[in-house]
Nucleic acid binder design. Structure first.
Lengths: 343, 343
DNA sequence: CTTCGCGTTTAGATCGATCTAAAAGCTTTT
DNA sequence: AAAAGCTTTTAGATCGATCTAAACGCGAAG
């Protein structure tokens, strides 16, 4: 560390300029790596910056240049590992573009979502990636674009006119149904929970379509508690009203984990006399016993896609809205088996 | 939405002032809720703000006022649900203080940590909460405080002279060892993985101390792979070199989940003829079968504590460093049992 | 009538960068 | 030698708020 003036206030571009015997303007060109400035001068300025321990003041720059190098990210729930992975994918891409992520949690509540969106505007983010809270109106998103704030919706699609990154949930459901059908299952339940939003509806519709196109009854949709600890004890709901499913597809891996436990408690052997398919394929799937067969939606990839969509839109705000929907992959492990002959 | 000038550039405080027939200065006092301004005037200004759809420009304010209402958070790994919960606790407290979180991922690499810390400084954060990457030198943290940047270390303690929020890992280990000992276990392994840092050392030392103070051999420390999928297949390492532990304490719940599967694969019945204790007590613990007994470190609480420490320091930068160490709780479920008589 | 005090309002400088348009150097033409 | 054409550098205005110190209006005190 070379000698610095600690007691004095922060060192500014003007200080650097003086030390290097150039003007403020020239120094500014150097930091921004403009090709205009001469090689020798550039070296002198960079040397001065190092000597003085200069740090760029983004805030001042943003005021003039109208770019904050900042991206807002709004998610409905941070504690869910799925969103954590999503966030990780977003952060990686945004970071490598030299920008930073401003994070906010909407708690899946539209009022809080309004709040944090206002805050993001005040902080002057260059754009926003939002997983819209359940119940979000298209008007909310249109409002944002009318503010000229670049926007990407992720995971949940509210408006056709706004960029979207997600996964092909319906196709994923079809993969799950097809796989179970190929094993001989004909009575298949669908276990759901959580708030109702587009991703929810896509999965439900995907399930129903896939079942119907095979002539199977799509009406065994069972709603389970949201709390992970309560799911296991609700496993009996699968068999209420005299239904006898031989397999269940889960809305996500959290449910699959809970039901796996609940079915075990009831003496059923998952993968032998009962089949279970998860959705999302989070890291735990591999560590469960039996290993969970799950439809992989690759949250990190979705996050990265969303971030790239936003970066593209930043460079061209007028480009028409795009959808980036990545393919799901059925990851077959051990939690499904052929239908038991006896049943 | 009242009539706005969409095509024109953003509406500024001066516009508001003009509309309300006051000066820029008065309008400024109104937004900042100063008691100086008259009731009637305040109402008129607020009305004008509403009519024009004014949004506060934090960037401009920060430049003058030297406060950005922004807090940097640096974590080593976002995909780990433990850090996601930690982040959630931080975000909630920071948000309710009217500030926002700027997020960065160090990937547990000191070079990247340097990078992102620089970026945070450039963005003018008011303070930083950092879970230091493995191998972080105390000098790194001291450097930050010399920059007059309020700082809190979370989960991992590098320097005594900097605020710290964490959990009493050593006490947690003692709880685990005591519990197993009370069930009659005498040969207890400790399964670890991951990078070496203060939290790692605290747990190892806590384990060794607790074992020794009961006259038990503390040398059965077994290192497992970092990848969750590989942990199960490494369960045999517990029994290498002819050792015959009857119980294992895990460094975290990720290992516990993996080992639970691996032990199952080897035909051992966890909770009956083998005992398993996790550490952290993440949400999955409840959903495992058998339900995982785990030492709860309450990541959300730690995060909230860290955020509060930072807010306190923001208001009083000279206050001496504090440590907020929250108590662990042994959450007893089903994965431990009395030592098998036959053994 | 002037002075003082008090609550309210304001003009003008300021924060630290960027941007524009023009100037200063330098070489090459005419 | 002057003009033209480069490349490189610069002065000064500017972004939108905050801060300081002074002014203003008005009733009470001297």
């Amino acid at each position: 560390m070379p000698f610095e003036d600690k007691k004095k206030s922060r060192v500014t571009l003007l200080d650097v300029a003086r030390r290097a015997n150039v003007s403020r303007a020239t120094a500014s060109l150097v930091i921004r790596k403009s090709p205009l400035v001469g090689t020798e001068t550039r070296a002198r300025v960079e040397e001065a910056m190092r000597e003085l321990g200069y740090v760029y003041n983004m805030g001042a720059a943003r005021l003039r240049a109208e770019r904050s190098h900042t991206v807002g990210v709004i998610v409905p729930n941070l504690t869910n590992p799925f969103f954590a992975e999503l966030l990780s994918g977003i952060e990686a891409v945004i970071d490598s573009a030299g920008m930073v992520v401003i994070l906010a949690n909407s708690g899946d509540l539209v009022e809080r979502q309004d709040m944090v969106m206002r805050r993001m505007r005040e902080h002057g983010v260059d754009g926003v990636i939002v997983c819209p809270a359940a119940g979000t109106e298209p008007a909310f998103l249109h409002q944002i674009t009318e503010w000229d704030l670049p926007l990407v919706q992720v995971l949940r699609q509210i408006s056709e006119e706004v960029d979207y990154a997600g996964s092909d949930y319906a196709a994923g459901m079809r993969q799950a149904v097809d796989y179970l059908a190929s094993l001989g299952h004909r009575t298949i339940a669908f276990a759901v929970h959580g708030p109702i939003h587009s991703a929810y509806r896509e999965r439900v519709e995907g399930f129903c379509d896939a079942m119907q196109s095979r002539g199977l009854d799509p009406n065994m949709i069972v709603r389970l508690p949201n709390q992970i600890g309560e799911i296991a004890d609700a496993a009996h709901l699968l068999f209420s009203e005299g239904k006898q499913p031989t397999a269940v597809i889960c809305f996500n891996d959290v449910i699959a984990l809970g039901l796996s436990a609940g079915l075990y408690d009831r003496g059923l052997k998952v993968g032998e006399n009962f089949s279970l398919i998860g959705f999302d394929d989070v890291t735990d799937a591999e560590a469960m016993r039996p290993r969970l067969t799950s439809v992989s939606t690759a949250p990190v990839t979705i996050g990265a896609n969303a971030a790239r969509l936003l970066l593209d839109r930043l460079t061209d705000p007028l480009r028409p809205a795009r959808r980036v929907v990545n393919e799901t992959i059925l990851h077959i492990r051990q939690s499904c088996g052929p239908i038991a002959i006896s049943a």
